[in-house]
Design a protein around this nucleic acid. Structure first.
Length: 526
DNA sequence: CTACCAATAT
DNA sequence: CATATTGGTA
Protein backbone atom coordinates (compact mmCIF):
# COMPACT_ATOMS: atom_id res chain seq x y z
CA UNK A 1 0.00 0.00 0.00
CA UNK A 2 2.71 2.38 0.88
CA UNK A 3 4.43 1.66 -2.35
CA UNK A 4 1.33 2.36 -4.32
CA UNK A 5 0.65 5.52 -2.39
CA UNK A 6 4.11 6.66 -3.15
CA UNK A 7 3.64 6.03 -6.76
CA UNK A 8 4.84 2.54 -7.35
CA UNK A 9 3.67 1.33 -10.68
CA UNK A 10 5.51 -1.84 -11.17
CA UNK A 11 7.24 -4.55 -9.31
CA UNK A 12 9.60 -7.38 -9.79
CA UNK A 13 9.35 -10.62 -8.02
CA UNK A 14 12.30 -12.00 -6.28
CA UNK A 15 14.68 -13.30 -7.00
CA UNK A 16 15.25 -10.42 -9.32
CA UNK A 17 17.13 -11.49 -12.37
CA UNK A 18 19.83 -9.32 -13.69
CA UNK A 19 18.12 -9.24 -17.06
CA UNK A 20 15.14 -7.61 -15.53
CA UNK A 21 17.26 -4.90 -14.14
CA UNK A 22 19.21 -4.53 -17.30
CA UNK A 23 16.09 -3.59 -19.09
CA UNK A 24 14.05 -1.80 -16.59
CA UNK A 25 16.65 0.71 -15.61
CA UNK A 26 16.51 2.07 -19.11
CA UNK A 27 12.93 2.95 -18.61
CA UNK A 28 13.83 4.79 -15.50
CA UNK A 29 16.51 6.75 -17.23
CA UNK A 30 14.35 7.47 -20.19
CA UNK A 31 11.61 8.73 -18.05
CA UNK A 32 13.92 11.01 -16.25
CA UNK A 33 15.14 12.42 -19.46
CA UNK A 34 11.66 12.85 -20.66
CA UNK A 35 10.54 14.52 -17.57
CA UNK A 36 13.50 16.78 -17.73
CA UNK A 37 12.56 17.87 -21.15
CA UNK A 38 8.99 18.31 -20.34
CA UNK A 39 9.35 19.78 -16.93
CA UNK A 40 12.45 21.78 -16.87
CA UNK A 41 10.78 24.03 -14.46
CA UNK A 42 8.75 21.42 -12.82
CA UNK A 43 8.47 21.81 -9.17
CA UNK A 44 11.60 20.37 -7.74
CA UNK A 45 9.85 19.89 -4.52
CA UNK A 46 7.93 17.06 -5.98
CA UNK A 47 10.85 15.04 -6.98
CA UNK A 48 10.91 11.62 -5.54
CA UNK A 49 14.07 10.92 -3.76
CA UNK A 50 13.08 7.37 -3.43
CA UNK A 51 12.84 6.91 -7.12
CA UNK A 52 16.11 8.65 -7.66
CA UNK A 53 17.85 6.69 -5.09
CA UNK A 54 16.63 3.45 -6.42
CA UNK A 55 17.45 4.41 -9.94
CA UNK A 56 20.93 5.34 -8.95
CA UNK A 57 21.40 1.94 -7.60
CA UNK A 58 19.97 0.51 -10.73
CA UNK A 59 17.10 -0.91 -8.91
CA UNK A 60 14.14 -1.45 -11.01
CA UNK A 61 11.45 -0.15 -8.85
CA UNK A 62 10.79 3.32 -9.95
CA UNK A 63 8.13 5.54 -8.74
CA UNK A 64 5.39 7.33 -10.47
CA UNK A 65 5.06 11.05 -10.31
CA UNK A 66 3.42 11.76 -7.05
CA UNK A 67 5.93 11.52 -4.34
CA UNK A 68 5.77 12.43 -0.79
CA UNK A 69 6.82 15.86 0.22
CA UNK A 70 8.90 14.49 2.94
CA UNK A 71 11.32 13.10 0.51
CA UNK A 72 11.44 16.12 -1.68
CA UNK A 73 14.21 18.01 -0.04
CA UNK A 74 16.68 15.25 -0.42
CA UNK A 75 15.96 14.70 -4.00
CA UNK A 76 16.51 18.30 -4.82
CA UNK A 77 20.15 17.73 -4.63
CA UNK A 78 19.99 15.05 -7.17
CA UNK A 79 19.89 16.57 -10.58
CA UNK A 80 18.93 13.39 -12.20
CA UNK A 81 15.72 13.27 -10.42
CA UNK A 82 12.91 14.98 -12.05
CA UNK A 83 9.61 13.48 -12.29
CA UNK A 84 7.65 13.09 -15.35
CA UNK A 85 3.99 13.31 -15.85
CA UNK A 86 1.57 10.70 -14.99
CA UNK A 87 0.28 10.25 -18.46
CA UNK A 88 3.60 9.62 -19.89
CA UNK A 89 4.61 7.31 -17.16
CA UNK A 90 1.54 5.34 -17.51
CA UNK A 91 2.29 4.51 -21.06
CA UNK A 92 5.74 3.53 -20.09
CA UNK A 93 4.49 1.48 -17.27
CA UNK A 94 2.32 -0.48 -19.51
CA UNK A 95 5.18 -1.18 -21.76
CA UNK A 96 7.21 -2.35 -18.91
CA UNK A 97 4.50 -4.40 -17.52
CA UNK A 98 4.13 -6.27 -20.71
CA UNK A 99 7.78 -6.59 -20.97
CA UNK A 100 8.03 -7.83 -17.49
CA UNK A 101 5.36 -10.32 -17.90
CA UNK A 102 6.92 -11.73 -20.94
CA UNK A 103 10.22 -12.07 -19.28
CA UNK A 104 9.03 -13.10 -15.96
CA UNK A 105 7.07 -16.02 -17.14
CA UNK A 106 9.99 -18.22 -17.93
CA UNK A 107 12.02 -17.35 -14.94
CA UNK A 108 9.12 -16.94 -12.65
CA UNK A 109 9.09 -20.66 -12.24
CA UNK A 110 10.48 -20.37 -8.82
CA UNK A 111 11.66 -23.54 -7.39
CA UNK A 112 9.29 -24.73 -4.78
CA UNK A 113 10.50 -24.42 -1.30
CA UNK A 114 12.53 -27.37 -0.38
CA UNK A 115 11.15 -29.52 2.33
CA UNK A 116 13.54 -31.64 4.25
CA UNK A 117 11.53 -34.74 4.59
CA UNK A 118 12.75 -37.74 6.45
CA UNK A 119 14.30 -39.31 3.44
CA UNK A 120 16.16 -36.23 2.47
CA UNK A 121 17.33 -35.73 5.94
CA UNK A 122 18.38 -39.31 6.12
CA UNK A 123 20.60 -38.81 3.14
CA UNK A 124 21.85 -35.66 4.65
CA UNK A 125 22.83 -37.47 7.78
CA UNK A 126 24.31 -40.29 5.85
CA UNK A 127 26.48 -37.85 4.01
CA UNK A 128 27.54 -36.13 7.17
CA UNK A 129 28.20 -39.40 8.79
CA UNK A 130 30.26 -40.44 5.87
CA UNK A 131 32.26 -37.28 5.76
CA UNK A 132 32.59 -36.86 9.42
CA UNK A 133 31.01 -33.91 11.02
CA UNK A 134 34.20 -31.97 10.85
CA UNK A 135 34.51 -32.26 7.16
CA UNK A 136 30.87 -32.11 6.34
CA UNK A 137 30.53 -29.06 4.19
CA UNK A 138 27.67 -28.16 2.00
CA UNK A 139 29.31 -28.91 -1.25
CA UNK A 140 30.55 -32.28 -0.32
CA UNK A 141 27.31 -33.15 1.30
CA UNK A 142 25.59 -32.16 -1.84
CA UNK A 143 27.76 -34.47 -3.85
CA UNK A 144 27.26 -37.30 -1.50
CA UNK A 145 23.55 -36.90 -1.29
CA UNK A 146 23.23 -36.88 -5.00
CA UNK A 147 19.76 -35.48 -5.00
CA UNK A 148 18.56 -33.84 -8.11
CA UNK A 149 17.56 -30.26 -7.74
CA UNK A 150 19.15 -29.93 -4.40
CA UNK A 151 21.46 -27.00 -4.14
CA UNK A 152 24.42 -26.24 -2.05
CA UNK A 153 22.46 -23.44 -0.53
CA UNK A 154 19.75 -25.81 0.47
CA UNK A 155 22.24 -27.92 2.24
CA UNK A 156 24.05 -25.02 3.73
CA UNK A 157 20.87 -23.81 5.23
CA UNK A 158 19.94 -27.17 6.54
CA UNK A 159 23.40 -27.72 7.82
CA UNK A 160 23.19 -24.49 9.63
CA UNK A 161 20.13 -25.57 11.39
CA UNK A 162 21.57 -28.95 12.02
CA UNK A 163 24.65 -27.54 13.63
CA UNK A 164 22.56 -25.24 15.65
CA UNK A 165 20.73 -28.23 16.94
CA UNK A 166 23.90 -30.03 17.80
CA UNK A 167 25.24 -27.04 19.55
CA UNK A 168 22.11 -26.58 21.50
CA UNK A 169 22.01 -30.11 22.69
CA UNK A 170 25.65 -30.02 23.57
CA UNK A 171 25.33 -26.94 25.61
CA UNK A 172 22.60 -28.36 27.70
CA UNK A 173 23.77 -31.81 28.56
CA UNK A 174 21.98 -31.64 31.87
CA UNK A 175 18.76 -31.51 30.08
CA UNK A 176 19.65 -34.54 28.14
CA UNK A 177 20.65 -36.46 31.17
CA UNK A 178 17.73 -35.45 33.24
CA UNK A 179 14.97 -35.39 30.81
CA UNK A 180 16.17 -37.67 28.16
CA UNK A 181 17.47 -36.63 24.88
CA UNK A 182 14.89 -34.44 23.35
CA UNK A 183 17.01 -32.80 20.80
CA UNK A 184 15.69 -33.47 17.37
CA UNK A 185 19.10 -33.44 15.86
CA UNK A 186 20.52 -35.87 18.24
CA UNK A 187 17.59 -38.02 17.63
CA UNK A 188 18.14 -37.80 14.00
CA UNK A 189 21.72 -38.63 14.52
CA UNK A 190 21.03 -41.63 16.52
CA UNK A 191 18.53 -42.85 14.10
CA UNK A 192 21.10 -42.82 11.44
CA UNK A 193 23.64 -44.32 13.64
CA UNK A 194 25.49 -41.11 13.64
CA UNK A 195 27.20 -41.01 16.91
CA UNK A 196 30.16 -38.84 16.55
CA UNK A 197 29.62 -35.40 17.78
CA UNK A 198 32.78 -33.52 17.28
CA UNK A 199 34.41 -32.33 20.41
CA UNK A 200 31.49 -33.22 22.49
CA UNK A 201 31.64 -35.91 25.03
CA UNK A 202 28.04 -35.50 25.79
CA UNK A 203 26.69 -37.04 22.71
CA UNK A 204 24.12 -39.54 23.48
CA UNK A 205 24.56 -42.49 21.31
CA UNK A 206 21.13 -43.87 21.41
CA UNK A 207 18.05 -41.88 21.61
CA UNK A 208 14.61 -42.11 20.37
CA UNK A 209 12.28 -39.63 18.90
CA UNK A 210 9.48 -38.32 20.87
CA UNK A 211 6.06 -37.41 19.88
CA UNK A 212 5.32 -35.51 22.95
CA UNK A 213 5.36 -31.82 22.59
CA UNK A 214 4.27 -28.77 24.36
CA UNK A 215 1.43 -28.68 22.01
CA UNK A 216 0.16 -31.91 23.26
CA UNK A 217 0.28 -30.76 26.75
CA UNK A 218 -1.48 -27.65 25.90
CA UNK A 219 -4.16 -29.65 24.33
CA UNK A 220 -4.87 -31.21 27.59
CA UNK A 221 -6.90 -28.20 28.36
CA UNK A 222 -8.59 -28.13 25.09
CA UNK A 223 -12.30 -28.69 24.80
CA UNK A 224 -11.71 -32.04 23.29
CA UNK A 225 -10.19 -33.00 26.51
CA UNK A 226 -10.43 -36.68 26.16
CA UNK A 227 -8.59 -36.90 22.96
CA UNK A 228 -6.07 -34.46 24.11
CA UNK A 229 -5.50 -36.37 27.21
CA UNK A 230 -5.26 -39.58 25.41
CA UNK A 231 -2.68 -38.28 23.12
CA UNK A 232 -0.71 -36.77 25.86
CA UNK A 233 -0.70 -39.67 28.09
CA UNK A 234 0.07 -42.07 25.42
CA UNK A 235 2.61 -39.97 23.81
CA UNK A 236 4.37 -38.83 26.84
CA UNK A 237 5.58 -42.20 27.88
CA UNK A 238 6.86 -42.71 24.44
CA UNK A 239 8.84 -39.66 24.92
CA UNK A 240 10.56 -41.23 27.79
CA UNK A 241 11.92 -43.69 25.40
CA UNK A 242 14.61 -41.32 24.56
CA UNK A 243 17.25 -43.42 25.98
CA UNK A 244 20.38 -42.23 27.48
CA UNK A 245 22.82 -44.69 28.81
CA UNK A 246 22.61 -42.74 32.01
CA UNK A 247 18.92 -42.35 32.13
CA UNK A 248 17.98 -45.67 30.83
CA UNK A 249 16.73 -46.75 34.13
CA UNK A 250 14.29 -44.03 34.45
CA UNK A 251 13.20 -44.37 30.96
CA UNK A 252 12.89 -48.03 31.17
CA UNK A 253 10.75 -47.57 34.17
CA UNK A 254 8.59 -45.24 32.35
CA UNK A 255 8.15 -47.62 29.60
CA UNK A 256 7.26 -50.33 31.94
CA UNK A 257 5.06 -48.04 33.82
CA UNK A 258 2.85 -47.99 30.89
CA UNK A 259 1.73 -51.47 31.35
CA UNK A 260 -1.81 -51.62 32.26
CA UNK A 261 -2.15 -55.31 32.66
CA UNK A 262 -0.25 -58.44 33.37
CA UNK A 263 -0.78 -59.64 29.93
CA UNK A 264 0.43 -56.50 28.50
CA UNK A 265 3.33 -56.32 30.78
CA UNK A 266 4.43 -59.71 29.83
CA UNK A 267 5.13 -58.42 26.44
CA UNK A 268 7.98 -56.53 27.85
CA UNK A 269 9.81 -59.39 29.21
CA UNK A 270 12.84 -58.69 27.20
CA UNK A 271 12.97 -55.07 27.97
CA UNK A 272 14.84 -54.91 31.20
CA UNK A 273 17.61 -56.85 29.61
CA UNK A 274 17.78 -55.02 26.40
CA UNK A 275 17.52 -51.61 27.87
CA UNK A 276 19.15 -51.96 31.18
CA UNK A 277 20.69 -55.24 31.92
CA UNK A 278 21.90 -53.95 35.23
CA UNK A 279 18.54 -53.43 36.67
CA UNK A 280 18.46 -55.16 39.97
CA UNK A 281 15.83 -57.76 40.38
CA UNK A 282 12.93 -56.95 42.53
CA UNK A 283 10.21 -58.70 44.35
CA UNK A 284 7.67 -56.05 44.34
CA UNK A 285 5.13 -58.31 42.93
CA UNK A 286 2.51 -57.09 45.32
CA UNK A 287 2.57 -53.62 44.03
CA UNK A 288 2.64 -54.85 40.60
CA UNK A 289 -0.31 -57.01 41.12
CA UNK A 290 -2.29 -54.11 42.32
CA UNK A 291 -1.13 -52.19 39.47
CA UNK A 292 -2.33 -54.73 37.10
CA UNK A 293 -5.80 -54.70 38.30
CA UNK A 294 -5.59 -51.02 38.40
CA UNK A 295 -4.59 -50.82 34.84
CA UNK A 296 -7.41 -53.08 34.05
CA UNK A 297 -9.74 -50.65 35.61
CA UNK A 298 -8.63 -48.09 33.16
CA UNK A 299 -9.72 -50.19 30.33
CA UNK A 300 -13.01 -49.77 28.81
CA UNK A 301 -13.76 -51.35 25.53
CA UNK A 302 -17.45 -51.71 25.39
CA UNK A 303 -17.67 -50.10 22.07
CA UNK A 304 -14.47 -51.62 21.05
CA UNK A 305 -14.14 -52.21 17.41
CA UNK A 306 -12.13 -55.33 16.77
CA UNK A 307 -11.54 -54.39 13.24
CA UNK A 308 -9.86 -51.19 14.06
CA UNK A 309 -7.94 -52.64 16.84
CA UNK A 310 -6.71 -55.50 14.85
CA UNK A 311 -5.59 -53.25 12.16
CA UNK A 312 -3.73 -51.16 14.59
CA UNK A 313 -2.18 -54.11 16.12
CA UNK A 314 -1.06 -55.59 12.95
CA UNK A 315 0.62 -52.43 12.12
CA UNK A 316 2.25 -52.37 15.40
CA UNK A 317 3.57 -55.80 14.91
CA UNK A 318 4.80 -54.94 11.55
CA UNK A 319 6.65 -52.07 12.87
CA UNK A 320 8.14 -54.37 15.35
CA UNK A 321 9.73 -56.59 12.91
CA UNK A 322 12.61 -54.31 12.43
CA UNK A 323 13.80 -54.73 15.93
CA UNK A 324 12.19 -57.16 18.17
CA UNK A 325 10.51 -60.39 17.57
CA UNK A 326 7.09 -60.84 18.86
CA UNK A 327 8.03 -64.24 19.97
CA UNK A 328 10.21 -62.60 22.51
CA UNK A 329 7.22 -61.89 24.61
CA UNK A 330 5.74 -64.98 26.07
CA UNK A 331 2.80 -64.66 28.34
CA UNK A 332 4.85 -64.44 31.42
CA UNK A 333 4.35 -61.68 33.88
CA UNK A 334 7.18 -62.41 36.21
CA UNK A 335 9.70 -60.63 34.11
CA UNK A 336 8.02 -57.38 34.63
CA UNK A 337 8.94 -56.93 38.20
CA UNK A 338 12.59 -56.89 37.56
CA UNK A 339 13.02 -53.55 39.04
CA UNK A 340 11.80 -51.90 42.14
CA UNK A 341 11.40 -48.63 40.50
CA UNK A 342 9.77 -50.34 37.75
CA UNK A 343 7.02 -51.59 39.88
CA UNK A 344 6.51 -48.22 41.39
CA UNK A 345 6.46 -46.35 38.24
CA UNK A 346 4.33 -48.91 36.77
CA UNK A 347 1.83 -48.26 39.37
CA UNK A 348 2.16 -44.59 39.05
CA UNK A 349 1.56 -44.56 35.50
CA UNK A 350 -1.26 -46.89 35.61
CA UNK A 351 -3.03 -44.53 37.87
CA UNK A 352 -2.72 -41.81 35.36
CA UNK A 353 -3.80 -44.02 32.59
CA UNK A 354 -6.66 -44.95 34.70
CA UNK A 355 -7.80 -41.48 34.34
CA UNK A 356 -7.18 -41.26 30.70
CA UNK A 357 -9.05 -44.41 30.06
CA UNK A 358 -6.71 -45.77 27.53
CA UNK A 359 -7.31 -49.20 26.36
CA UNK A 360 -4.85 -51.97 26.88
CA UNK A 361 -4.20 -51.92 23.25
CA UNK A 362 -2.49 -48.68 23.75
CA UNK A 363 -0.28 -50.00 26.36
CA UNK A 364 0.57 -53.17 24.78
CA UNK A 365 1.56 -51.33 21.75
CA UNK A 366 3.40 -48.87 23.83
CA UNK A 367 5.20 -51.56 25.57
CA UNK A 368 6.59 -52.49 22.30
CA UNK A 369 9.00 -49.80 22.86
CA UNK A 370 11.96 -51.57 24.11
CA UNK A 371 13.87 -52.85 21.19
CA UNK A 372 17.57 -53.39 21.35
CA UNK A 373 19.55 -50.26 21.60
CA UNK A 374 21.63 -51.20 18.65
CA UNK A 375 18.90 -50.50 16.23
CA UNK A 376 17.69 -47.05 16.78
CA UNK A 377 16.06 -47.01 13.47
CA UNK A 378 14.11 -50.00 14.26
CA UNK A 379 12.95 -48.29 17.34
CA UNK A 380 11.76 -45.47 15.37
CA UNK A 381 9.69 -47.70 13.29
CA UNK A 382 8.38 -49.34 16.27
CA UNK A 383 7.41 -46.06 17.70
CA UNK A 384 5.76 -45.06 14.58
CA UNK A 385 3.76 -48.14 14.72
CA UNK A 386 3.06 -47.45 18.27
CA UNK A 387 1.92 -44.01 17.63
CA UNK A 388 -0.31 -45.20 14.98
CA UNK A 389 -1.74 -47.68 17.26
CA UNK A 390 -2.26 -45.05 19.81
CA UNK A 391 -4.02 -42.91 17.39
CA UNK A 392 -6.17 -45.72 16.36
CA UNK A 393 -7.04 -46.41 19.87
CA UNK A 394 -7.86 -42.85 20.39
CA UNK A 395 -10.20 -43.13 17.54
CA UNK A 396 -12.27 -45.76 18.97
CA UNK A 397 -11.93 -44.49 22.43
CA UNK A 398 -13.65 -41.43 21.36
CA UNK A 399 -16.79 -43.33 20.85
CA UNK A 400 -16.89 -44.35 24.37
CA UNK A 401 -19.27 -42.69 26.64
CA UNK A 402 -17.13 -42.08 29.63
CA UNK A 403 -15.62 -39.02 28.19
CA UNK A 404 -17.83 -36.70 30.12
CA UNK A 405 -17.37 -38.64 33.29
CA UNK A 406 -13.68 -38.14 33.24
CA UNK A 407 -13.53 -34.65 32.05
CA UNK A 408 -12.87 -33.33 35.46
CA UNK A 409 -10.19 -35.84 35.89
CA UNK A 410 -8.61 -34.85 32.69
CA UNK A 411 -8.47 -31.36 33.81
CA UNK A 412 -6.71 -32.33 36.91
CA UNK A 413 -4.29 -34.27 34.90
CA UNK A 414 -3.50 -31.47 32.64
CA UNK A 415 -2.88 -29.25 35.54
CA UNK A 416 -0.58 -31.72 37.01
CA UNK A 417 1.29 -32.04 33.82
CA UNK A 418 1.69 -28.40 33.55
CA UNK A 419 2.82 -27.73 37.03
CA UNK A 420 4.85 -30.60 38.18
CA UNK A 421 8.39 -30.18 37.12
CA UNK A 422 10.38 -32.80 38.80
CA UNK A 423 9.51 -35.05 41.59
CA UNK A 424 10.43 -38.53 42.45
CA UNK A 425 7.90 -41.17 43.08
CA UNK A 426 8.35 -42.24 46.61
CA UNK A 427 4.91 -43.09 47.78
CA UNK A 428 3.82 -46.42 48.91
CA UNK A 429 3.01 -47.95 45.67
CA UNK A 430 1.20 -50.76 47.20
CA UNK A 431 -1.19 -48.58 49.02
CA UNK A 432 -1.61 -46.38 46.08
CA UNK A 433 -2.39 -49.20 43.85
CA UNK A 434 -4.67 -50.60 46.38
CA UNK A 435 -6.70 -47.54 46.84
CA UNK A 436 -6.93 -47.02 43.20
CA UNK A 437 -7.89 -50.50 42.65
CA UNK A 438 -10.78 -50.19 45.00
CA UNK A 439 -11.80 -46.77 44.19
CA UNK A 440 -12.88 -45.85 40.78
CA UNK A 441 -12.76 -42.21 41.49
CA UNK A 442 -9.43 -40.76 40.71
CA UNK A 443 -8.52 -37.81 42.77
CA UNK A 444 -6.24 -35.14 41.58
CA UNK A 445 -3.96 -35.92 44.40
CA UNK A 446 -3.45 -39.38 43.24
CA UNK A 447 -2.89 -38.23 39.82
CA UNK A 448 -0.24 -35.95 41.03
CA UNK A 449 1.50 -38.80 42.61
CA UNK A 450 1.17 -40.79 39.52
CA UNK A 451 2.73 -38.10 37.50
CA UNK A 452 5.49 -37.41 39.86
CA UNK A 453 7.90 -39.22 37.71
CA UNK A 454 10.23 -36.65 36.22
CA UNK A 455 10.38 -38.38 32.95
CA UNK A 456 6.73 -37.77 32.55
CA UNK A 457 6.92 -34.12 33.21
CA UNK A 458 9.97 -33.10 31.39
CA UNK A 459 10.21 -30.04 29.29
CA UNK A 460 8.75 -30.41 25.91
CA UNK A 461 10.71 -27.84 24.10
CA UNK A 462 12.57 -29.90 21.62
CA UNK A 463 10.71 -33.04 21.87
CA UNK A 464 9.43 -33.16 18.45
CA UNK A 465 11.06 -35.63 16.27
CA UNK A 466 12.04 -34.46 12.95
CA UNK A 467 10.40 -37.03 10.80
CA UNK A 468 7.43 -37.27 12.97
CA UNK A 469 5.87 -34.11 11.97
CA UNK A 470 3.29 -35.69 9.85
CA UNK A 471 2.23 -37.89 12.64
CA UNK A 472 2.14 -35.07 15.02
CA UNK A 473 0.03 -33.33 12.53
CA UNK A 474 -2.27 -36.24 12.58
CA UNK A 475 -2.65 -35.89 16.24
CA UNK A 476 -3.48 -32.33 15.76
CA UNK A 477 -6.01 -33.25 13.24
CA UNK A 478 -7.56 -35.65 15.60
CA UNK A 479 -8.76 -32.63 17.41
CA UNK A 480 -10.75 -31.81 14.39
CA UNK A 481 -11.89 -35.06 13.00
CA UNK A 482 -11.24 -38.56 13.98
CA UNK A 483 -11.93 -39.79 10.56
CA UNK A 484 -9.34 -37.57 9.10
CA UNK A 485 -7.04 -38.73 11.72
CA UNK A 486 -7.45 -42.28 10.75
CA UNK A 487 -6.91 -41.67 7.14
CA UNK A 488 -3.98 -39.46 7.55
CA UNK A 489 -2.38 -41.65 10.05
CA UNK A 490 -2.47 -44.50 7.71
CA UNK A 491 -1.30 -42.51 4.83
CA UNK A 492 1.61 -41.08 6.63
CA UNK A 493 2.68 -44.35 8.01
CA UNK A 494 2.06 -46.59 5.13
CA UNK A 495 5.32 -45.80 3.53
CA UNK A 496 7.22 -46.42 6.64
CA UNK A 497 5.50 -49.61 7.36
CA UNK A 498 5.57 -51.01 3.92
CA UNK A 499 9.11 -52.17 4.17
CA UNK A 500 8.54 -54.11 7.28
CA UNK A 501 7.43 -57.65 7.25
CA UNK A 502 4.23 -58.51 8.93
CA UNK A 503 3.32 -61.08 11.46
CA UNK A 504 -0.35 -60.99 11.54
CA UNK A 505 -0.71 -64.23 13.34
CA UNK A 506 1.11 -63.02 16.33
CA UNK A 507 -0.65 -59.78 16.16
CA UNK A 508 -4.00 -61.38 16.27
CA UNK A 509 -3.00 -63.58 19.10
CA UNK A 510 -1.90 -60.66 21.09
CA UNK A 511 -5.02 -58.94 20.21
CA UNK A 512 -7.09 -61.69 21.57
CA UNK A 513 -5.30 -61.57 24.83
CA UNK A 514 -5.88 -57.93 25.11
CA UNK A 515 -9.48 -58.19 24.30
CA UNK A 516 -10.09 -60.78 26.89
CA UNK A 517 -8.50 -58.63 29.39
CA UNK A 518 -10.48 -55.69 28.29
CA UNK A 519 -13.69 -57.49 28.59
CA UNK A 520 -12.86 -58.56 32.03
CA UNK A 521 -12.40 -55.08 33.29
CA UNK A 522 -14.84 -53.26 31.21
CA UNK A 523 -16.75 -50.67 33.04
CA UNK A 524 -14.65 -50.69 36.11
CA UNK A 525 -13.24 -47.30 35.44
CA UNK A 526 -16.56 -45.63 35.42
C1' DC B 1 36.17 -16.90 -7.98
C1' DT B 2 34.14 -20.37 -5.11
C1' DA B 3 32.66 -21.87 -0.63
C1' DC B 4 31.43 -21.10 3.94
C1' DC B 5 28.52 -19.57 7.17
C1' DA B 6 26.44 -16.18 10.47
C1' DA B 7 23.01 -13.11 10.10
C1' DT B 8 18.76 -11.90 8.16
C1' DA B 9 14.82 -12.22 5.51
C1' DT B 10 10.79 -14.61 4.08
C1' DC C 1 9.62 -22.48 12.72
C1' DA C 2 11.87 -24.11 8.53
C1' DT C 3 14.06 -22.44 4.54
C1' DA C 4 16.02 -19.05 1.63
C1' DT C 5 19.02 -15.27 0.72
C1' DT C 6 22.57 -12.12 1.67
C1' DG C 7 26.98 -10.47 2.43
C1' DG C 8 31.47 -10.59 4.60
C1' DT C 9 35.36 -13.76 4.66
C1' DA C 10 38.54 -17.26 3.88
Amino acid sequence: MRGVIHGACDYLTKPVRIEELQNIWQHVVRRRIDSKDKNKTASEGKACSMAGKLANEEKACYMAGECSQAMASKSNADQNIKLGQKRKEQSEDEEEEEYDQENEEPSNQKKPRLVWDAELHRKFLAAINHLGIDKAFPKRILDLMNVEGLTRENIASHLQKYRLGLKKSTQQPSMVATLGNSDPYQQMDSIEGFRTLSGSGGMISTTLPSYASGGLFCRLNSPSGLRGINSSLLVQPVHSQNIDSRSIKTLGNMQLSMFSANQTSSLLQGIPTSIDGNSPPTHNSGAFGNHSSLGAASVKTQSFDPGICELGYNRCNKSWQGTTQISKFPANTSAVSNNDQLAQNNLNFSSSTFCSGNSPVDFSSTSVVAPPLEDARGKLRCQEGLLENILLTSCYTQHQSWEADNRGCNKEMSQTFNTIKSVSPNGDTSSLGHSLDQNNTVSSKRIDVSLVNPSVTQSSEDEKFYSMESIDGCILQSMESQEDLMQNTFESLDDIMSEITKQEQNAIMLMDGEMEFDAYHVGSCI
